[in-house]
């Protein structure tokens, strides 16, 4: 009987230990459950925050080709020229060539074609020409890039010229509420409806024999502000419709080209080719 009692006592102790272990396990499970709940709540908050950021981003960038006011505030007519300062401090501005550009950041980075800024690069290199000019007219000539956004003239800085293909990046000192978004992948573009945006006003005809005109300075043929050269129509963007008929890759340069029939003129060079949601596929050349 003593033995049996001892066994029973031991069994009771074991049962107590098992119960204690069970309580510990339940508590641990509860804690794990709470942690899981917290993780789920955190994950949900993170998703909501990410959705808000994505939503804000969409609201703060162009998202439709029907947003004409937004587009007018995000495209720019690029004018290459020079400022001439005479010995007595009088200033003149001369336009040499023009093209199009569009903004891709809120702080004024604008994309254009490399060939649109070609005349600027030429003037930058023309040291002898500038020295001769100074001797001949007692005046300095300084190359300049201006960008007209919604008819307002801004000085632009050349930030980058691509060594791979025909694009360049400018920067103007202006805030942009809704820049364009760029398309990262060229999938399913064949037959897509597109719009070409730009300032088609002939890039060169008003400046025939432009280098001659530039180096032959006469006050009465110059403007004090280059804005006087352009009328309202030339400072308003034009949007043309078309479809993509081919997407090819140049075998030598590996550059991808989009063939489309949205009409562009010389001055539209540097403008964006956009889809319906205003995302930019590329730069018109």
């Amino acid at each position: 009987a003593e033995k049996t009692a001892e066994n029973a006592h031991k069994a009771a102790d074991d049962a107590d230990t098992a119960a204690e272990n069970a309580v510990t396990l339940v508590e641990e499970a509860k804690k794990a459950g709470e942690k899981t709940d917290m993780a789920a709540r955190n994950a949900h908050a993170a998703v909501t925050a990410a959705e808000k950021v994505a939503g804000d981003l969409k609201d703060s960038t162009l998202n439709s080709i029907r947003d004409h006011e937004g587009i007018a505030e995000a495209v720019g007519k690029v004018v290459i020229g020079a400022t001439i300062t005479t010995y007595d401090g009088e200033q003149f501005q001369i336009a040499v060539s023009s093209g199009s550009s569009f903004t891709i950041t809120r702080d004024g980075h604008m994309l254009t074609n490399k060939h649109v800024v070609e005349e600027y690069l030429k003037l930058q290199r023309a040291r002898d020409g500038k020295d001769d000019f100074k001797r001949k007219y007692n005046a300095t000539l300084e190359e300049q890039i201006w960008v007209f956004v919604n008819k307002e003239k801004h000085d632009a800085e050349l930030i980058h010229v691509s060594d791979k293909t025909d694009y360049a990046i400018l920067r103007v000192n202006r805030r942009f509420a809704k820049p364009f978004r760029l398309k990262a992948v060229p999938e399913r573009l064949l037959d897509a409806e597109v719009r070409a945006v730009g300032f088609p006003g002939a890039a060169t005809t008003p400046f025939t024999d432009r280098e001659g005109r530039l180096w032959e300075f006469s006050k009465n043929k110059c403007h004090s502000d280059v804005a006087e050269v352009f009328n309202d129509r030339e400072l308003q963007y034009v949007m043309t419709a078309g479809r993509i008929s081919q997407v090819t890759e140049d075998t030598a340069t590996k550059v991808k080209w989009i063939l489309h029939n949205a009409g562009i003129a010389r001055g539209s060079s540097g403008g964006p080719l956009v889809l319906q949601d205003a995302t930019v596929l590329g730069v018109n050349t």
Binding site: I104, K183, A184, I258, L259, L273, V280, L281, T285
Partner: peptide, 24 residues
């Protein structure tokens, strides 16, 4: 008419225009 597709120059553009927004 031709356009140069931008996606292929993503790294280059990002470097010189920080803040540019890309969409898939």
């Amino acid at each position: 008419y031709h356009a140069i597709f931008f996606g292929q120059f993503r790294g280059d553009i990002d470097k010189h225009a920080p803040g540019v927004v890309w969409v898939p």
